[in-house]
């Protein structure tokens, strides 16, 4: 009898745990969600209003970026942002925004969330569009007169757009060790 009651009781407890929700927390507000870094999808989802020109970007870059990335974006304290196209399959690959990054949206997202290094979040969306336009222009990816906004930026084809492949591992080391 005793063991039977235990058997009956245990599944009942387990079922309760499976079905009930803890119902903790509060509904997240629009303000809370908006305040969380505004992650940008490769299709441009999440990009805000505003636009920026290459010329405006040159100004932003000189004021906010050149100190670390160098006057010509060739790198200093921060990495180089130009060059390297055609080097990825060589013995000395030079990975930059221009040669390696597959999506222009990632440049926008990263500048917006993480730059300038010592004051991330400082740049307003039009400034981010502008400085991204300038960097893309320096790499010859867009023309000097192109304007970057939520519509044009996701349409930019980066040189290394198709340069990424899925993880094929295990690719090495699959052979079991010889038994002695």
């Amino acid at each position: 009898m005793f063991s039977l009651s235990v058997i009956v009781l245990l599944p009942a407890v387990a079922l309760a745990a499976q079905q009930e929700k803890y119902s903790v927390g509060r509904p997240a507000t629009v303000e809370q969600i908006r305040g969380l870094g505004a992650a940008i999808a490769p299709d441009g989802g999440g990009l805000p209003e505003g636009s920026g020109t290459v010329a405006a970007g040159r100004e932003v870059f000189a004021a906010r970026c050149a100190k670390c990335h160098g006057e010509k974006a060739a790198g200093d304290i921060g990495p180089a942002l130009v060059g390297g196209q055609g080097t990825l399959a060589t013995v000395k690959p030079f990975k930059t925004v221009g040669s390696f990054w597959p999506h222009a949206t990632t440049v926008w997202d990263y500048v917006n969330r993480a730059m300038p290094f010592n004051e991330p979040g400082l740049l307003k969306p039009p400034e981010v569009y502008a400085v991204v336009a300038y960097i893309l222009s320096l790499n010859g990816i867009i023309g000097k007169d192109q304007i970057m906004d939520a519509k044009t930026l996701p349409k930019v084809i980066m040189p290394n757009r198709d340069g990424f492949v899925a993880d094929p591992r295990p690719d090495v080391g699959v052979k079991p060790a010889k038994k002695k």
Binding site: I40, P42, T106, F164, D167
Partner: peptide
């Protein structure tokens, strides 16, 4: 979302110039 740290970083550049992405698992 192809963030900076999963595309330009933590991806594995192969001799043919292609880079492996989302190589999450750490092997033995």
């Amino acid at each position: 979302y192809m963030t900076r740290d999963e595309t330009s970083k933590y991806s594995d550049l192969m001799p043919d110039g292609k880079a492996r992405i989302f190589t999450f698992q750490m092997e033995a």
